[in-house]
Design a protein around this nucleic acid. Structure first.
Lengths: 257, 257
DNA sequence: CTGCCGCAATGATCCATATCAACAATACGC
DNA sequence: GCGTATTGTTGATATGGATCATTGCGGCAG
């Protein structure tokens, strides 16, 4: 009931350019084949699973879930990034998470969607009907088990984020985010500290960052500048950040000193 | 994959004072028999399930989970209230949720506990070893399915709370909390507005409230007074609050106007 | 009944971050 | 490659909520 996927799987050599046999699934060449949900399934299971999937590509800004609409689908992201968010009537927005390759979307829902989701980058994904997936889970208990494991992992991240939103200062939020994002990119399963000079590529805008961390874009900008001036990070360009002193970031993130 | 328990079940007449037969489980008289996880199980399933449970009572303040310790158990609350929280090194605390009768504790964890849990009121609960529950779930798929459903429901609540912590004002937080707490007490499954003059009983201290809502106790106190002065609520005593104008509270909570 | 103790309410002041306002850099259409 | 639009940075000021301080209240031991 634990084991959140093998970190090493990310680096698995992918079978590219295979002549497609009649039995081959489109999954074989998918960047997410050895991530998240799909990694939990055998080739045979995946073949069934794949038949229930509707593959699609979406341009930037396209909405794939809308808060308050009936919840009809799950999605599994194959490539790109999706932001998940809620909004208040006057337009204030809280981004509750980002979904990238291997991430499963839709567990946070009841009869209706409780969040909206839209593409930050161009996105490729597999769509499943809820009913279809439920039917599949009757035959493949591994599916339901893996979904539970994914949900539990998401709950863990949520706890962390609530601590951040409720109790951390702006600087602590930025430091926490940088480390979390680095860990996510490295797919370093253990909570180990990223190595010095880890280079983050950040598809998100400052505005996404702000709405994820519960501050304004100006505060994001200032906090990043602050960390840069103190030599903890470097910012070669808007969408790249180099972590010079991860340990120092960690100290800030955890509210030490 | 949805249906979060029948609201009406709360009012089920409970079988009291039955002469215990040899086959009876202690569950028959449990206040949580028709709530949460246990409600999803048949009597027969419950009998097996019950054998894996270790029943216990805890005094106020007793820690039942500690952040960072190996995650060994799940708990199901039978009576009383537990607070779930994370802390920063300098003592700042964020309460991420409260668990009362029928609530299941431990889904938000990996190898280690990511949160601590302690009794707010005297608590009675059933404890399960993780391994034991996993074994049980092999034979009873309904168990895993219900756990997934519980986890999904928790994810929904988490999204709501992140919006609150990241983007709402102090007054909006208090108004949101009062409505959410009322819905929880009424076990009104649908998101309907509580009726005017709904009386909330609040075992929590102002400090619990503050750490749950990401503000200080002074701000909680001031916001409550503010709502009281505007006639939206009444506060007969510290641990009781009457909702005079739920619709007005809802407007505040949703950031309308 | 009285005095103590812990919690809650209220008031005074301060500060971190929001808001408002230029300005700079980058991306983008033609 | 040029000009415009968009996004990000930095500065000045305002403010919501934190912090510090005082007072009030309710429970409880003696």
């Amino acid at each position: 009931m634990s084991s959140h996927g093998k970190a090493a799987a990310v680096y698995h050599p992918l079978a590219i350019n295979l002549a497609a046999s009649s039995s081959a699934t489109p999954c074989e060449n998918c960047g997410a084949r050895h991530l998240g949900l799909c990694d939990a399934l055998s080739d045979e299971e995946l073949a069934f699973f794949s038949r229930a999937a509707h593959r699609m590509s979406l341009p930037v800004g396209k909405l794939l879930l809308e808060e308050g609409e009936p919840a009809q689908h799950f999605y599994n992201v194959n490539a790109g990034t999706v932001r998940l968010f809620k909004t208040l009537q006057d337009g204030r927005r809280q981004i509750t998470g980002f979904a990238s390759a291997g991430h499963f979307i839709g567990l946070a829902s009841s009869e209706l969607n409780v969040i909206s989701a839209e593409a930050v980058e161009p996105v490729r994904l597999c769509r499943f009907s809820r009913a279809g997936l439920q039917a599949l889970s009757e035959d493949y208990p591994a599916l339901e088990r893996k979904l539970l494991s994914l949900a539990m992992h998401e709950l863990v991240l949520n706890q962390e984020q609530m601590l951040l939103l409720g109790r951390k200062t702006a600087l602590e939020r930025i430091a926490s985010f940088l480390l979390a994002w680095a860990r996510r990119q490295e797919a370093c399963a253990t909570g180990k500290l990223p190595k010095p000079n880890t280079r983050l590529s950040l598809a998100l805008s400052r505005s996404d960052l702000a709405d994820y961390l519960g501050v304004t874009i100006e505060t994001v900008s200032r906090s990043l500048s602050h960390l840069k001036n103190d030599g903890l990070i470097e910012i070669p360009n808007t969408h790249e950040i180099i972590l010079r002193r991860p340990q120092a970031l960690e100290n800030i993130a955890e509210g030490a000193g």
